[in-house]
Nucleic acid binder design. Structure first.
Length: 419
DNA sequence: TCTGGGGTCCTAGGACCC
DNA sequence: TCTGGGGTCCTAGGACCC
């Protein structure tokens, strides 16, 4: 059987661990630039606050103290995620980390699944302070449905097991087709137009018809709902195909200097991410966008990909390429709101061919980059950067409601006082 | 005034080759 | 001027996920 552990309202729960006064209150976490809602507590959901709701529409409630709002603090969430995953791994062995707040794992089916799952959930929650739910079923898609039910119905007490065909069919009947993992808004619209309303209706369609309408992806979902496992994640085996760093700016800008400053920071971040994974890339893409929510302004969406002469994770090479691409796409007369850098054609560094003309180049690069990474780790991101990178700050993201880095910054460590 | 960031997979269609 | 089948590779766009 397959288990899925999923943290409840993860970002909100991370904020609550260090601020117990937030328990029972409506809490939301906002995206970069405090733009829109990306996480909600159950109380906030009950108020009808939608995922992705623009923050300015909630301003009155936030200012009045009716909702507690926080800027997203991904350093904190990443660290809490590592703790949750570490605890789960200690309890069940191999896990497949599917996202920052959820992981699949195998669980033997000849044991008391309900009891064991509840024990896992309790121990992870007690060790980390993060409430979690567990779904168990024969396939990943059904485990998702079980997990959803475990969260939605308090009677399940955080755990739902689908281990008989009877339970499977009942779960499918209670699940709207659009709530199935792999069926998004477009396809669920299409399905409803065909009077396919529930996961049960979908699973009863002829397989060949699903294949024709939705291609192989839809067919896999169909199989999984019918208890035939066919989605394999195996995320550890395959290295990422591309790595991207992009941001919306705090304010729009038409200045090449501002864009170059942003693109430099994004390129350095991509190179850092490559090194952290022990990978190298052979292509760099820079893209820029104007503000699509301002139809009154001239719009521009542009990107340019630069092939590298050899695979690398050297910040200097990637930064040069990214800035070169920026010069090709930059047009004055537009107010840009967002930019990003993508590195692609990624392979493990171990597979790189040595340079024919300078067999020292890799060693030199590794020494320098290793030193930069070590200093940035010690003194904080951006402490050391290349002199060639422009330094305007205008593009910086705005985070006015940021919580402290309780777990990753000694200056922010929580202080316990006693009288 | 104010609307996130980082990924994956699949398909269709064009360019090119024999 | 007419006549063909079968491949590969690449890209853009669509759909999905958290």
């Amino acid at each position: 059987m397959i288990g899925l552990l999923d943290c409840n309202n993860f970002y909100v729960s991370c904020e609550r661990v260090f601020r117990p006064a937030l328990n029972g209150r409506p809490v939301v976490v906002l995206s970069n630039n405090d733009g829109c809602v990306i996480a909600r507590s159950n109380e906030a959901k009950a108020m009808g606050i939608e995922m992705g709701a623009p923050a300015f529409r909630l301003k009155k409630l936030i200012d009045a103290g009716a909702i507690a709002a926080y800027s997203s603090n991904f350093r904190l969430y990443g660290d809490m995620s590592r703790r949750v995953m570490g605890m789960l791994r200690a309890l069940v062995g191999d896990i497949e980390v599917y996202s920052i707040d959820e992981a699949f794992f195998q669980i033997p089916d000849d044991i008391d699944l309900q009891g064991r799952a509840r024990e896992i959930a309790d121990r992870v929650s007690r060790a980390t302070g993060i409430p979690v739910s567990i779904g168990i079923a024969p396939t990943r898609t059904l485990a998702k449905i079980a997990n959803h039910a475990a969260k939605k119905f308090p009677a399940y007490k955080k755990v739902c097991v689908i281990d008989t065909d009877d339970k499977r069919l009942r779960a499918l009947q209670l699940t709207a087709v659009g709530d199935v993992w792999g069926i998004g808004r477009r396809i669920s619209d299409k399905m409803r137009a065909m009077n396919v309303q529930t996961a049960f209706d979908f699973a009863r369609l002829p397989r060949a018809r699903v294949r024709r309408l939705l291609t192989v992806t839809g067919e896999k979902t169909w199989c999984e709902l019918n208890a035939i496992p066919c989605i394999d994640l195996d995320s550890d085996a395959a290295p990422r195909r591309q790595i991207c760093t992009s941001r919306s700016f705090g304010e729009m800008t038409n200045s090449l200097d501002d864009l170059a400053a942003a693109v430099s920071a994004f390129a350095a971040s991509c190179a850092e991410k490559l090194r952290a994974r022990g990978c190298v890339a052979a292509a760099v893409t820079t893209f820029v966008l104007t503000n699509r929510f301002r139809p009154d302004l001239p719009q521009c969406v542009a990107g340019e990909t630069v092939p590298l002469s050899r695979h690398t994770n050297d910040t200097r090479v990637i930064l040069d390429a990214a800035l070169g691409a920026l010069l090709k796409i930059y047009r004055p007369g537009f107010l840009f709101k967002k930019a990003g850098v993508v590195v692609s054609e990624i392979i493990p560094a171990a597979q790189v061919q040595p340079d024919l003309f300078d067999d020292n180049i890799d060693a030199k690069s590794q020494n320098l980059m290793g030193a930069i990474d070590a200093l940035n780790k010690k003194y904080g991101r951006g402490a050391v950067r290349l002199g060639s990178a422009p330094r305007t700050e205008k593009w910086r993201t705005v985070r006015n409601m940021l919580s402290p880095n309780y777990t990753t910054d000694l200056d922010d460590i929580i202080v316990v006082k006693s009288d």
